[in-house]
Amino acid sequence: MHSFLVFLQKEFAEQLRTKRLFILICFFAFFGFAAPVLTRYMQDIINATAGAAAMAFEMPPTTWVDSWAQFYSLFGQLGALGVIMLFMGCISGEKQSGSAALTLTKNISHTSFVMAKFISMAVLLIISFALAVGIAYGYTYFLFGYAGSLAGVLLGATTYGLSLIALLGLIVLSSALTKSSVASAMMAFGAFIFFFVVAQNIPGIHAWMPGTLAGQPLVLLAGEELQLTSVFGALGLTVLCLIGAIHTLKKQEI
């Protein structure tokens, strides 16, 4: 336990000193600012860029719900890619550079090594995402006069946050399985496509998939019930990924 805490502290310090925290906060905060603005001024932007031809095209008036839809849409496309790019080398990078060989021949278990990395990244992800949600809420309120009930927004953000954690689990497993950052990014991206996009169309399992969970904020904003199976599915997938990563690293030659 002691070495886990020491390594966790080192991981947090690393997130700060390598400016990873700053990068992720800025990246996510951009979505928080951009989504309400893009939604509110979409018609003006189209008119300004497309000229007279677009004047004839009249968009229906946008609402605060569209702002949140835009926010989660940005996260589903660019956000996931950014998270994969930022964390792809969390384990494979250390194996590739040789720093893992130095650390793992000291008094630290493979479990502590993997868990400390996962928890530090999860905290970083949660902080950045929470900040982005706060910014999106404030801006949506400012531009549309209403941003939804706070409880609904928080519940939606929590469900989406859980899907990001599941994505992080996939990244950690990919990074443990491979020996280069590029290979782990490709594997994580493939896993993301499967679990967040493809599996949503497979009858019988789609309700358990993290992709379904990622769609829950909008379902909740529409006044529908939370699909609990997707919460359990995402949590289960995360746990399985972590167990897989620990087991892989334990059996792997570095």
Binding site: K10, E14, R17, T18, S97, G98, S99, A101, L102, T105, K106, N107
Partner: peptide
Amino acid sequence: DNSNIGYLPDVPNFYGY
């Protein structure tokens, strides 16, 4: 149990920061 060994690989890489 690595508590009583030390190791220096051929190309050591530390946390550069």
